[in-house]
């Protein structure tokens, strides 16, 4: 019986020694970038973390947004380079990414607006 996981176009995903060297260079660059971003995040967390800063102020809000932007940057590099989504067809890329861009916006909304509203509403009606 023919198996559909060994059809011919899978075989097409080969590359030469030379291309391999180029790809490894790119992988090395992304590795450095991910490590540096993680180090910056940890540094920021240690210096301006919620232990040292008023969690209701605007300073903490901007740090939070910076954390989220760095996370999305890291996620983007992992998805596009490590998971090779950048090399797939445009349609497949959009099918996977667009729902998640909407979802991240939703997560952002729940995190910052919805929960803050509930928090303030509870204080307003005196229910803890």
């Amino acid at each position: 019986m023919e198996r559909d996981d060994i059809i011919e176009y899978s075989l097409h995903a080969h590359h030469s020694e030379e291309e391999g060297r180029k790809i490894r260079k790119k992988i090395f660059f992304v590795t450095m970038l991910l490590s540096v971003i993680t180090a910056v995040e940890v540094g920021m967390g240690m210096i301006w973390g919620k232990a040292h800063i008023d969690v209701n102020g605007w300073g903490w809000m901007s740090i939070k947004i910076a954390f989220i932007l760095m996370t999305i940057l890291k996620a983007g590099y992992i998805i596009m380079i490590f998971m090779h989504l950048g090399d797939e067809r445009k349609t497949l890329r959009r099918i996977i990414l667009v729902p998640y861009l909407i979802f991240i916006a939703y997560l952002f909304f729940i995190l910052f607006f919805e929960s803050t509203y509930i928090h303030e509403f509870k204080a307003f009606i005196g229910w803890v």
């Binding site: 996981d5 011919e8 176009y9 097409h12 995903a13 090399d87």
Partner: peptide
């Protein structure tokens, strides 16, 4: 790098539409 459906593939192993959607193999998709 990604699998491109450039070769003619035996009809038996293809999806109903005659080619693989998005040029990705079944398992990967």
């Amino acid at each position: 790098m990604a699998g491109e459906a450039t070769q003619v593939i035996d009809k038996q192993v293809l999806w109903g539409g005659g080619r693989s959607p998005f040029s990705v193999s079944y398992g990967k998709m």
